[in-house]
Design a protein around this nucleic acid. Structure first.
Lengths: 188, 188
DNA sequence: CCCCACCCTCTACAAATGTAGAGTTTTTCA
DNA sequence: TGAAAAACTCTACATTTGTAGAGGGTGGGG
């Protein structure tokens, strides 16, 4: 492994552990082991635990933002080739498959967001992650500007996070693409 | 304090700590202190930590179910006195104010649900809590039976949990009663 | 009064954690 | 090349946790 990539590798492992073992599972030792690095490595790069979690939050936010940008680009292309109807279906499709594929990311986000509501060290983490996750919603929001009064961005964000929540932690049936599309259409 | 109430008092404290300090904050010692009981009390009633959390989950689920039943009764009354339109507004109103008032309950639910996705000791906790929280939605769902195909219970549950999530952990603007009502009306 | 069963409280301890700081290797650059 | 600096690894330790098990108190039946 490139030495220069260690910092990133450590943060990837933190996010992975957050998803699989929860906040309590994130210890310097566990992170070192997961990354296959010598004990003390994560302590070296992030001497305090809060620093480790803070950096992991930024890392996660960056990932979310990148995914959001991709969605946005895909949406623009779908509009160009298939019109708005198809574009809405595209977003719904992506959202559902993404909610499954990005389950670890969602779980990590939940862990960090919950932690930030009570740990002063992590102030701002919740806002940062929420903002990252809302980026595509804000874009999507432009589409329904004429109904802004009734369905502001908060409503859409709530719905979408609820879907993510269901897919990430729920053991019950998941929403299908058609169902999500139906919701979007009824709002648009 | 009545000695016979100690078990319940302990579980109340567990839920409180889950909300204020998170899962990691729930230690036998911290629970004893919060309950004002001698060290070892929570250990006596719940010798293993998993037993403590499991019992707390049941306790929380019972609370949620009770609140849900109250909402259901209120809804029925609202239908009787003001018709369906007013009843929908009633539910939206209750939901928003409840989401604020029950913030600790929601946070505790999140903590336990997240924990149950990875800790075998807590298997079933997620389902139990999800089921409890969905009870009123299932009832509400009866109202839109004719559009069941498009808006199944999962969709409504996702939306409502998303709203709860926003109110519980979000630092941004909250949804207003009018906004929630608008969503309900557009679906109904 | 005594004793026993039960309910509760206290003490002890191994394991794990955050963190400090010493020791070691690698890189840099004159 | 050689030494100073930076980058990294290792060791140690106080603290906290879950849990076991000993100890104490209390009420009721004989």
């Amino acid at each position: 492994m490139k030495k220069s990539g260690r910092r990133e590798a450590i943060l990837d492992c933190v996010i992975d552990i957050l998803a699989t073992r929860g906040l309590a599972g994130v210890t310097h030792r566990a992170v070192d082991d997961a990354a296959g690095l010598p004990r003390g490595s994560s302590t070296y790069y992030f001497p305090k635990k809060a620093a480790l979690l803070l950096a992991a939050s930024d890392h996660l936010a960056a990932m979310l933002e990148k995914d959001c940008d991709d969605l946005q680009i895909g949406f623009a292309e779908a509009v160009a080739t298939g019109g708005m109807d198809e574009a809405v279906a595209y977003v719904a499709r992506e959202l559902v498959s993404y909610a499954d594929a990005s389950r670890p990311l969602f779980l990590a986000r939940m862990e960090l967001t919950l932690a930030s509501t009570r740990q002063d060290d992590l102030a701002g983490v919740g806002e940062r992650l929420t903002a990252a996750a809302r980026r595509p919603i804000a874009f999507f929001f432009g589409l329904i500007a004429d109904r802004r009064q009734e369905f502001p961005i908060e409503t859409c964000a709530g719905l979408i996070d609820g879907i993510g929540l269901m897919h990430a932690v729920g053991q019950g049936p998941r929403l299908t693409t058609d169902q999500v599309t139906a919701v979007f259409r009824s709002i648009l």
